[in-house]
Amino acid sequence: MADRVAALSGPQGPRPRRRFSRRNIIIYGTLAVVAFYYLLPLYVMIVTSLKGMPEIRLGNIFAPPVEITFEPWVKAWAQACTGLNCDGLSRGFWNSVQITVPSVIVSILIASVNGYALANWRFRGADVFFTILIFGAFIPYQVMLYPIVIMLREIGLYGSLWGLVIVHTIFGMPILTLLFRNYFTSLPEELFKAARIDGARFWGIYFRIMLPMSLPIFVVAMILQVTGIWNDFLFGVVYTKPDTYPMTVQLNNIVNTVQGVREYNVNMAATLLTGLVPLVIYFVSGKLFVRGIAAGAVKG
């Protein structure tokens, strides 16, 4: 190799590149500054939640804690007060779990069957309903808030967890149906035809052929729904009672309470606790999350 190179004269091999070219400095410099700006709030949340109140009052919010204390976390989880209840965010956490789990399951089941029916079993009028559904995704929730209150009251579910499950199923339906319909449409149609010739019917094809092939899209839908429902505030505050408030509503009540001294460290611990579930999902799921939001962006 060496003698070969020596035989050539003049420019050869790759273009000379300086590691610190102006282009690289601009690109990486900008990205580093932006990344710093994006990470700052998370950092401040963490350090604040680990400080004691005296240190917060004296010090600087960016300074790392001199003395690390986990007391704010304990307090936020088990003792913080909202109104008369003083059992901390734990109540909201468990409420949110109780809301999120059935909502995710029910909404995904219904939407996947819808999407499957729309993709493979076209019937007259299906497209009309689907168009209404997609337009529904753009209607401000405020327009439909009160009619749903009346409907839930009529069936006796207003204020209950199951009422909220229905609400999440309804409002998750447009985007999830779209997601599943597009996915099922992308599967080879021959597969569906072959199954029909083999005598499989609606549910047979759904459970035996479509479901096993659609695991990734179910995971995407799950990520979309878990973060969406966990982060919901509006439906929680409208359709539940203080006892059944989801975590976001309870968090807001704890932090924005007007009574007593503001304990910023407890507030930040509570905020972090509430953000923890979607954050963990985000960091674990990576590319699937990106796929989910790209598909779910229509939800707005």
């Binding site: 050539l8 003049g10 420019p11 273009r15 000379p16």
Partner: peptide, 13 residues
Amino acid sequence: AGQIFINGANVTW
């Protein structure tokens, strides 16, 4: 590695 000439000029870079 190597070189490319076009019309006699070394255009590798």
